[in-house]
Design a binder for these strands. Structure first.
Lengths: 128, 128
DNA sequence: TCACATGGTTTCCTCCGGGATACCGGGGCG
DNA sequence: CGCCCCGGTATCCCGGAGGAAACCATGTGA
């Protein structure tokens, strides 16, 4: 009967599983917005910075570096006038585009429902 | 000329847009794991706690409360022996199941590619 | 010569996320 | 009677995330 425990290699429900680290990286507000912005053509650093309103230079730089390290984003330097750096999704990163877009924009489509739920919840909590 | 700026109601790229708050809530490691775990039948508090290894009671409690307030999760109390509390996805929460599952388990499917990318990146950084 | 742009790095400082721990209320049960 | 379990809440406290701002090299243009 040989039950060679055919365990799944990775399980995100397990503490210590390396996938937890990756999940921590992509389950992040700034990372999702950046990945979403990188759909389509490559984008320059300051362009992303201007588009994602409120992101600081430091956080953008850090997040891009981590995403590059994980192989989701590629970085290309052009020796132009003032140096130009372009960021783009790698093929690995592109496997996430659809999911990222759905999650990042879910709030836009469902904001009214969420606001209604919050008002209901708060009203009920108030008279408890 | 009356240009009543026909602006989109919500834009997650805008600072101060309320959708940013919602994105912050769902773009969270613990929230995603909880939402993923709630697919299918309702689940009891300590059941979730045992399944998502490493989550603390406080974080689970807090996250569930926020998700309930946003209308993604419902909470039902049963006046049983020791009180039983069941959590489940609301219809609003169910609109996210597919996306949540894809994101939460993406790392499991792509862990090897990510590890390879990390090794390449680190090797290149070392001899910079 | 000074100012400005790009794409960063570094330092400082503050806030709060989250782990550890203790406590609670009520019923079952030995 | 004392103890345990369920599903929490309250408190303490530390480390790290992230904003603000200064600094940097390079090259262009006024």
């Amino acid at each position: 009967m040989e039950t060679t425990t055919l365990q799944r290699a990775y399980d995100v429900y397990e503490d210590r599983c390396p996938t937890r680290l990756v999940l921590d990286r992509i389950a992040d507000k700034w990372a999702l917005l950046i990945l979403d912005r990188l759909q389509g053509e490559p984008v320059r650093f300051n362009h992303i910075r201007r588009d994602i309103k409120g992101i600081s230079q430091k956080v953008l730089s850090q997040t891009l570096k981590k995403l590059e390290r994980d192989g989701l984003v590629s970085r290309t330097v052009f020796a132009t006038v003032p140096v130009t750096v372009e960021y783009a999704l790698t093929p690995l990163g592109q496997t996430l585009t659809e999911t990222v877009a759905t999650l990042a924009h879910w709030a836009e489509r469902n904001m009214d429902a969420v606001l209604t739920a919050q008002r209901t919840y708060d009203a009920a909590a108030e008279l408890r």
